[in-house]
Design a protein around this nucleic acid. Structure first.
Lengths: 125, 125
DNA sequence: CCGAATTACGACTATCGTAATTATC
DNA sequence: GATAATTACGATAGTCGTAATTCGG
């Protein structure tokens, strides 16, 4: 099992077909088909039902989809933290916004950001 | 970046040396050395300092280690859920315990379990 | 000297894409 | 007939391990 297979699984589930997922991931349909099959074999679970014309998530697939999405999110955050820490890149983040925009939701987002990336110098201009 | 590289990174950090990590992962030292280097290149961050005789985590490495450990934990949970859902395996879980044991903490654990694996039929005998 | 990390290189595995097949709408 | 999924297969790329090298205790 690897992250690429998870990404393929999630994309197929979110787009609803191999063809659409293939476009989104810049791969071909057969590639995704075998990758998905390998993931199903590795997990020992059938993620999609192929009985109908279009694929549909099985009960197990629906449950695993949630965890897969969360796993991908964590992987993205890991990579982002890596890029952020690569020295010389964006040690400070300056944020500016129009006074017309309601400030409340923005402050909440910034608060969350500061908690997550507490070593970034955040400056409001 | 893939999960195997993350696993290698974490194992080296936890064991403290390439040799120990190689034994733990049933790989060779050179294999882990190049794998680690590839991960560092992919992230653009130096995870370990090689100046001293033994490797030591850099500041960036320490931060990334936490997220890496959490990411691996999520991956494990994903695989476990997959195995659990592979039909025919443990659709029902019967739990029995001695009346002498304090029941309060056990109930809490079972509550947590039910939330996480809400499709498992949990039965107290 | 011995253990640890790095580099070089040959072998192997795995994945990708193209092409062909089957089936559904 | 057009779109979607599967299967087969050749080419490519990535990774593994062995061997050789360098450096610190």
């Amino acid at each position: 099992m690897n992250l690429d297979q998870i990404r393929i699984f999630v994309t197929i589930a979110e787009t609803g077909s191999l063809g659409a997922a293939a476009k989104a991931l810049f791969r071909t349909q057969p590639t995704l088909s075998v990758a998905l099959k390998k993931l199903e074999e590795a997990l020992g679970v059938q993620l999609f039902s192929r009985k109908a014309y279009r694929m549909s998530l099985t009960a197990a697939g629906k449950q695993l989809l949630r965890k897969a999405q969360y796993l991908l999110e964590q992987a993205r955050e890991f990579e982002n933290l890596g890029r952020y820490l690569s020295s010389g890149h964006e040690p400070e983040l300056r944020v500016a916004f129009d006074p017309l925009i309601p400030i409340q939701p923005i402050l909440h987002i910034l608060k969350t950001f500061e908690q997550k990336y507490c070593q970034t110098q955040l400056t409001l201009v």
